[in-house]
Design a binder for these strands. Sequence first.
RNA 1: GUCCCCAUCGUCUAGAGGCCCAGGACGUCGCCCUUUCACGGCGAAAACACGGGUUCGACUCCCGUUGGGGACGCCA
Length: 458
Amino acid sequence: MTVRTRIAPSPTGDPHVGTAYQALLNYAYARKHGGAFVLRVEDTDRARSTRASEAAILRSLRWLGLAWDEGPDVGGPFAPYRQSERIEACREVAERLLGGGKAYRDFGEDAGGAYAIRLRTPETGRIALPDRLRQDLSKDWESVDDPVLLKSDGFPTYHLANVVDDHLMEITDVIRGEEWIASLPKHLLLYETLGWDPPSFWHVPLLRNNDKNRTKLSKRRSPTSIDFYRQAGFLPEALLNFLGMLAWTRAEGEEKFTLDAFVEHFELGSLSLAGAVFDTEKLAWLNGRYLREDYDPRELAGLLRNWRFDDHTLEAAAGLAQPRMRTLGDFGPLASLFFTDETPRDPDDLAGSLEPSEVAEWLLLAEWALEDLPEFTGEAVHQALRALSESLGVKLRKFTRPLYVALSGSASSTPLFGSMVLLGSAMTRMRLRRARSALGGVPRRREKELETTHRQRA
RNA sequence: GUCCCCAUCGUCUAGAGGCCCAGGACGUCGCCCUUUCACGGCGAAAACACGGGUUCGACUCCCGUUGGGGACGCCA
């Protein structure tokens, strides 16, 4: 049987490096075995999925050089490759299970009569969980609740969509994060009830934050957006190489390798099962090697032009700096924030005469406000930040001062909103986050409180 | 809390019972090169979580403890 693997990202946010990591493993496994690598968009969350996010994810993965053989953009024999366009199959399956008494309606607390469809799971017994990376996994049915198959909005959940689509697309190997181990019984039960052969499962360890506890990589704690790394000036081949390095190092000791070399030598079965910390220090070192070893100065200049020294960026930066320029030479210092990854963040500069802990909270709230923007435009940023300062009862001028410093390292710089837009959402939020941690951060407990009120407002 | 998973230097890893008083890489420190810095070269410090087994022999196998992570959503 031809090997078929897939990456099934959910288009609900920034392109995540964890997605890229799993895409790499799926890609490598398929290539190594002469099979096909499929990209399927798992847009089953109607409220959070966006086309913008989908486009960003596809663009990022392509930027990294992970070409898929079948997908929503390139088509293929198992089209469509967008879950929302194939919900009929899921609904049929759900109805069939309902009719056969394998599933039941759950009206929950909905008074309007809308219901979800849940799969009936056994009450007793224990199920063996086949995993190609681990030995003898199992779980008591008692600890597995009845999964929702079809939500009351008529959309399938991941559990259903995933199984149905993997079956219909003839996926042979599901290589996914180990966060799914707990859900494996539900998926296996579906395969069994439907009379389908389940694929092989490989649950790969999650990438971790470089924090004290090594929690799973999250945007709250680390830069996780592939866009961030691109904008910070990392090369796609370096990022991809780094991701590969987390899974495999060659015996000869050389850690710089191409995608092809990774495909050729990497053995999924020998993957280390401990979650690797995403260490940006090593990534930076590797990136430096690519810059030094693979490009002559002329090519490097081309890289720079592609990165930020293009006409559009230069013109936008010039426009922002212009009112503050007396000589052309003033441009360098004024616009340096657009052409650097690191900006100075001195806690005293950031807080000024204000309370550092309070400023840290402002930065956190600003970060969330910007994160929620559907469109990252000057006007949208302006409105969001003004609304936030009003809700805090702080004058906008006072509120934005620390933001300037967070962005540029200086209180006197180019206009804030325009600068944010030019820097882009991922980079802007990263700088706010770094400034926040320079200020001592926001205590976890307080962050939860703020999150609750933030959620209510949103 | 319940269930599940994991465990080699600070970090990424090599190690598939003797080759290991544990190898490489990042980071750190020192020296060299050098008009500075960086690069490069050389070197140093730095780990088998702990306790029991099994075995002639355990980093490697088994059990327990501890630690960490993940899942407990009509999110994926």
